[in-house]
Design a binder for these strands. Structure first.
Length: 434
RNA sequence: GACCUCAUCGUCUAGUCUGGUCAGGACGCGAGCUUUUCAAGCUUGCAACGCGGGUUCAAAUCCCGCUGAGGUCGCCA
């Protein structure tokens, strides 16, 4: 990024996850909007690990969160961990006690909250919000065990790090007046706040483990690609305007405006996510798709080192428009990679109702002479055999597809034969009724 | 319960600030074209301003009430 001269009032935002679990889809969208805002404004994006809960924070979650963010392309300019900063929180708490703004309760430090005051802030997304301090009780700043309370460490850090805009989930709205009180008590400048609508599950209830996949890493495992997930996520609560939905990150950043963010909670919709992901997969070349598919196929034990890349690209070309995730490639094209592919009971049953061993054997014998074993040649021979038999194409096409692929749906039969290869095609035809 | 927030097709949304285009697009769903099946693609159909009052010549848009939904009320974050 080229910033020859620092902007007068540089924007600085942050994403502050706590490493007590995986990065979930809601957190990812919060991070995404912060990141987009920073990039759109030529500002900085800070990642702050809020690991003040020593009991529940785990290093593997911290790593998982960072891996997920990197995978999504949400790179950070600065990184902090709150566990490195406990001294800072204690010092600020001591000052508040010394200044009479807070008091001790045992080893804990509590902020004194005055009554009957209106605390106002102009939310970037929702406009003016007012709370009365009668609704707010005295706030714990430092806990008895010496660790800082969330609200307090958050305020100290946001102030010290120079965070200009706090963009976070709507569930933090009622934390805001409490934190404003802390900014005031310490004499810090209060940042701008913007509260994002929440992402709900299909049932309209809050996204939770009950919903199924909530972790970004789950979607990665399911074979979604980062550009697709990110594009879908940004559509939840924001629109590039016009009728555009599929939009590259670069263009989205150029159009991004925090004022255009919705106030309404959005329901997560898997079908649409898949559709968006499919748009990205379709737009890839077979070669680009191979880079993404190879690791998945290898992990499934379907591909060994030394495979033919040209062959794989032909396969991907056939499946590009038939898959919305990489996982679906494994499910639908497995028969091309192994002889141990699965055939569902219903497909098996359907096939048994049209047993044609003689016809299959005849077809196999003719196909054996196909040279080269490509789409044109196999189709010509196939049609010849069917004509000789005097039956409709479909009568032969469908059972053959099932014998070769284990399924009754798939790419064109001759495309399928061509990538399957002569040896496997003949073997499966001849073994079909054994 | 108290406080806060929100309210356009089933879902995601445009339109709301600066009232006045058959309320537009997308996913999904239905129909058709194409076709050896399934996708993809193209054409097309169904489908919404939560309710009630105002203000106005005119309200999805402004105001009030209601209802509904969500959030927060921890020495969790």
């Amino acid at each position: 990024m080229s910033t020859p001269e620092a902007p007068v009032s540089a924007v600085k935002v942050r994403f502050a996850p706590s490493p007590t679990g995986f990065l979930h889809i809601g957190g990812a969208r919060t991070a995404l909007f912060n990141w987009m805002y920073a990039r759109a404004q030529g500002g900085k994006f800070v990642l702050r690990v809020e690991d003040t809960d020593l009991e529940r924070s785990r290093p593997e979650f911290e790593k998982e969160i960072m891996d997920s963010m990197a995978w999504l392309g949400l790179t950070w300019d600065e990184l902090y961990k709150q566990s490195d900063r406990f001294g800072l929180y204690r010092d600020h708490a001591e000052k508040l006690v010394a200044g009479g703004k807070a008091f001790r309760d045992g080893t804990a430090v509590i902020l004194k909250v005055d009554k009957a005051r209106d605390i106002k802030f102009d939310d970037l997304i929702r406009g003016l919000i007012v709370f009365n301090t009668d609704e707010i009780k005295d706030q714990v700043l430092m806990k008895s065990d010496g660790s800082p309370a969330y609200s307090f460490s958050c305020v100290v850090d946001d102030a010290l790090m120079g965070i200009t805009h706090v963009i976070r989930g709507e569930d933090h709205i009622s934390n805001t007046p409490k934190q404003i009180l802390m900014y005031e008590a310490m004499g810090f400048k209060v940042p701008k706040f913007g509260h994002l609508p929440l992402i709900m599950g299909t049932d309209g209830a809050r996204l939770s483990k009950r919903f199924g996949a909530v972790a970004v890493s789950d979607y990665r495992k399911e074979g979604f690609i980062p550009e697709g997930l990110v594009n879908y996520l940004m559509l939840l609560g924001w629109s590039p305007g016009g009728d555009q939905e599929i939009i590259a990150m670069k263009n989205a950043v150029a159009k991004f405006s925090i004022k255009k963010i919705n106030k309404t909670a959005a329901q997560f919709n898997m079908e649409k996510l898949k559709w968006v992901n499919a748009q990205y997969i379709k737009a890839l070349t077979a070669k680009q798709l191979a880079v993404l598919a190879v690791p998945v196929l290898k992990e499934e034990g379907l591909l060994a080192d030394g495979f033919d890349p040209a062959w794989l690209e032909r396969v991907l070309e056939l499946y590009k428009s038939r898959m919305s995730t990489l996982r679906e490639l494994v499910e639908r094209a497995g028969f091309l990679f192994t002889d141990d592919f699965k055939v569902s009971d219903e497909v098996r049953a359907a096939q048994l109702t049209r047993v044609m061993p003689k016809e299959f054997a005849l077809l196999a014998d003719h196909l054996e002479k196909a040279e080269p074993f490509d789409v044109v040649t196999t189709e010509k021979i196939f049609r010849g055999v069917v004509a000789g038999l005097g039956i409709p194409m479909g009568e032969m096409v469908h059972p053959v597809r099932v014998a070769l692929t284990g399924d009754h749906v798939g790419p064109g039969l001759f495309d399928t034969m061509s990538v399957l290869g002569k040896a496997r095609t003949l073997a499966r035809l001849r073994a079909a009724f054994v």
